[in-house]
Nucleic acid binder design. Structure first.
Lengths: 157, 157
DNA sequence: GCTCGGTGCGCAATATCATTGCTCGACCCG
DNA sequence: CGGGTCGAGCAATGATATTGCGCACCGAGC
């Protein structure tokens, strides 16, 4: 079990998680200062959180536009079958597409919600067509993102 | 201008971005080694990428379940009006809800796609009810996440 | 009331890292 | 061919991460 629904998180742990979720590159010295600990026990707590899988990793957040991805959109994809083999095949296929950033199965059936990025509208259309043309895909509804009011990673702490 | 659709990114820059997107806490020494630079110029490039807003920040990725959030779901929300004041009011309201992690306006009209987290199904139901009861909300369709095949943050580099 | 573990903190020392100033070579333009 | 710019590497310094150790606190059992 990578993660226990364990209650081994005290107030200091939660504060550490909140700080690192907001700024994952904070130095341990600064983190320790903020949570009111000295550096060594603070670092030991961070290591423990990492080892227990509560902290899964650290990531730089990049600007999609600067990297040439002007468009973020979602796609609701319905498959023709709900057989596990078909579902897995679809997941495996889109996992290989770099433009597909997230793939969530929803409602237990043959439906998926995908988040994708595209360089421009032509690229977006190509991706949508590629989805529609994929085997077993019955319908595709794209949800174009116009503007994003909130985009907080992770969870409240 | 926070971000230029600038072509000032060479191959080394892209490699730096890819590495930091994957492991945002990598030491500069290690990063330099991987991209084939010595530490100082590597650090200077990272600083430049940060200052130009191409790197927006760094975040720890936390395990929602370990923090008591068993459920992630999406909600398609339709408003009764497309007036800008109504849209903004809705955005402003859900921005204050900690369980709402993302809020995207879609299709330019009165529709939003939200990503939410909930502690359990009761909590999820309460959130859905709260959405439905919000002013100007015409309809709410929840998309429960059954399983996630891919969840890559950011963009391909 | 007292002792025995167990747990978790702070201190101090050392290895590692980040950061700065400087020099040097490659390249471009006149 | 000479001045200018850009970016890399080297070396030195300050800051940080990391480890080992001793001490205080807390609960259980006698």
């Amino acid at each position: 079990m990578p993660t226990d629904p364990d209650f081994s998180l005290d107030e200091v742990d939660r504060q550490i998680l909140a700080e690192l979720q907001q700024d994952g590159r904070m130095t341990n010295v600064e983190l320790a200062r903020r949570v009111g600990l000295s550096a060594p026990p603070c670092l030991r707590r961070v290591r423990r959180l990492e080892e227990e899988g509560i902290i899964r990793g650290y990531h730089a957040e990049l600007d999609p536009v600067a990297l040439g991805y002007e468009i973020t959109f979602f796609a609701l994809v319905g498959l023709e079958s709900q057989k596990e083999a078909v579902l897995s095949a679809f997941e495996g296929a889109v996992k290989e597409w770099p433009e597909v950033r997230e793939c969530h199965m929803i409602r237990g059936g043959g439906d998926f919600l995908l988040r994708l990025v595209a360089r421009d509208t032509a690229h977006e259309n190509a991706l949508t067509s590629r989805l529609t043309a994929a085997p077993e895909v019955a319908r595709v509804q794209t949800l174009q993102t116009i503007r994003t009011a909130k985009d907080a990673a992770g969870v409240p702490v």
